[in-house]
Computed example of a mutant assay.
Amino acid sequence: MDLVLGAADRYVFTPYVYPATWPEDSFFRQTLSLLIVTNLGAYILYFLFATLSYYFIFDHSLMKHPQFLKNQVYREIMFTVRALPWMSIPTVMLFLLELRGYSKLYDDIGGFPSGWFQLIISVLSFLFFTDMLIYWIHRGLHHRLVYKHIHKPHHIWKITTPFASHAFHPVDGFLQSLPYHIYPFIFPLHKVVYLGLYILVNIWTISIHDGSARQEGKSLLGEFTKTE
């Protein structure tokens, strides 16, 4: 995230936003800047790719399904718009730790004996690690003591559109994103790869809510719990 923040400081924040007396490495400035960048980036990714998916991939005939809610698309969007800022707060705390050097993120491929091989393996490892943890987190969110309080709001949308992709309770949304942020604190990962994977993960989240995975999602729900 320091790559994004560095560019934002260079071209926007330093020349146009913050006073010259506020140093770029100030803890409070970095926190505020990360909140702005994270929320702006999340909204751009969400509205851009969810809109493209909605108009070019989503099967609009699903909107005639009896379980498709009245004004559902609007409700999905408003739910997301309200939830994303709250999800961003703990996310920014992790970004801040990364920015201050507590993670294993690196920017020099030559710093490892294996070089490019290390980078390729890290991508595969990242995908395995995050997919495994998200499965267990998702399963835990379906526990009867947790489900109705945190995860059930996401299952209001029985027939999902791409706009439901980020319509989570803030705690639910953050917990399911947590494996992506934990990984670089445990294993080395290139900064550009991390940023690219973070973007791709958000696009993937939108893609699995475009209607084509509806039956698979319902079978998982049935497997986890019947608490609805």
Score class of each variant (00 low, 15 high):
137 I>D: 01
113 P>Q: 13
146 V>M: 08
81 V>P: 02
102 Y>T: 08
82 R>Y: 08
61 S>R: 12
164 A>E: 03
88 S>R: 01
158 K>M: 08
67 Q>F: 05
86 W>N: 04
141 L>E: 06
135 Y>H: 13
146 V>H: 03
114 S>E: 14
132 M>A: 14
115 G>Q: 13
68 F>W: 04
150 I>E: 02
60 H>Y: 04
77 I>S: 05
75 R>Y: 11
60 H>P: 08
93 M>S: 12
79 F>D: 09
142 H>R: 09
129 F>M: 04
90 P>T: 00
151 H>T: 06
60 H>T: 11
72 Q>H: 08
143 H>P: 00
67 Q>P: 00
136 W>A: 03
154 H>G: 09
101 G>P: 06
150 I>F: 13
89 I>G: 00
124 L>I: 15
114 S>A: 14
117 F>D: 10
80 T>Y: 06
111 G>H: 08
103 S>Q: 09
120 I>P: 03
101 G>C: 07
76 E>H: 08
98 E>L: 07
74 Y>V: 14
139 R>Y: 14
64 K>T: 12
105 L>N: 03
124 L>V: 15
143 H>N: 13
128 F>S: 10
164 A>C: 11
79 F>A: 13
85 P>T: 06
105 L>A: 01
126 F>W: 14
148 K>Q: 15
116 W>I: 14
94 L>D: 00
97 L>E: 05
65 H>Q: 07
76 E>R: 05
75 R>V: 12
108 D>M: 05
152 K>H: 13
99 L>P: 01
92 V>T: 13
98 E>Y: 07
93 M>K: 02
158 K>Q: 11
149 H>G: 04
148 K>I: 06
99 L>S: 12
85 P>W: 06
89 I>T: 00
92 V>W: 05
76 E>K: 05
134 I>D: 10
79 F>P: 03
62 L>Q: 12
130 T>A: 10
152 K>E: 14
134 I>A: 11
141 L>Y: 04
129 F>V: 04
61 S>V: 01
107 D>V: 08
88 S>V: 01
